[in-house]
Nucleic acid binder design. Sequence first.
DNA 1: GATGAAAAATCTGTGAC
DNA 2: GTCACAGATTTTTCATC
Lengths: 151, 151
Amino acid sequence: MLDDVDRRILRQMQAAPELPNADLAARCDLTPATCWRRIEKMQASGVLNGQQAVIDWQALGYAVEVSLRITLDKTQTRAFDEFIEAARKVRHVIEIQTFLGRVDVRLSVIARDMPHYQQIYRERILTLPHIADIEALMHVARIKQGEALPL
Amino acid sequence: MLDDVDRRILRQMQAAPELPNADLAARCDLTPATCWRRIEKMQASGVLNGQQAVIDWQALGYAVEVSLRITLDKTQTRAFDEFIEAARKVRHVIEIQTFLGRVDVRLSVIARDMPHYQQIYRERILTLPHIADIEALMHVARIKQGEALPL
DNA sequence: GATGAAAAATCTGTGAC
DNA sequence: GTCACAGATTTTTCATC
């Protein structure tokens, strides 16, 4: 379903995402047309989901990032869905992951500074439905994020 | 440092990252040239760090994702740096975050299936230096990731 | 069914206003 | 901030393997 040529393209796209198609093709030892067609096929099959703008929160003035691990009160059937739905709407929640096990959900929350974070936490997070337990970790740095991957 | 026009551009870039500059400008009620210059300025100031290709691991055949919380043995001064440096080199580690508090590091690891994960865990993760404690959570879904942000 | 070459349509980035 | 243009790039088409 995915051959070596495709893998080569993906690898190069990760290494240099903004490269024009012609240059990308050159690095993969392909002609621009072939390279382009491969990319289209991968997009059609869902392996590639386009590009995403990388925004630096720190430079934008968001100095604080906190990772919250949340356990839900699952005595109510719809607890999970209701919580996720509500959490999605909180603008300062930039990441939601769900898990199997003792912890149900992890949220990443950004804020301008600590007072701002406290405000978001009290008004936006603690008011989310069905929370049984929360544990917070203050974020220091994001060292690696989707760069070099096993291809 | 960043006015409403810039915010509007960033918001649109997140909503539709692949849009040509001209269309992006139209959605922000700007002329293409103005929009372009704003983007350049934001790139220069470090707010915008280009684009990143979004690859779907599941479609690529990586069915398993595990989140590992690691506490380090900090009795040795260089423990932290040595651990991070070693972890960066592991290809199946797709994310590394560091924290302030009881837990030091969080890693996201992907694998083709559970046997493959077990192999990576034993050979690539447990062999990392200075680990005092590990806790693993099996990932179910990534529901939100850098889409709608507070701008 | 996939490739390569080349032409047509489109976009970017610059310079003048 | 706007307008227009030259150069570069993407995307199609067509012949080929």
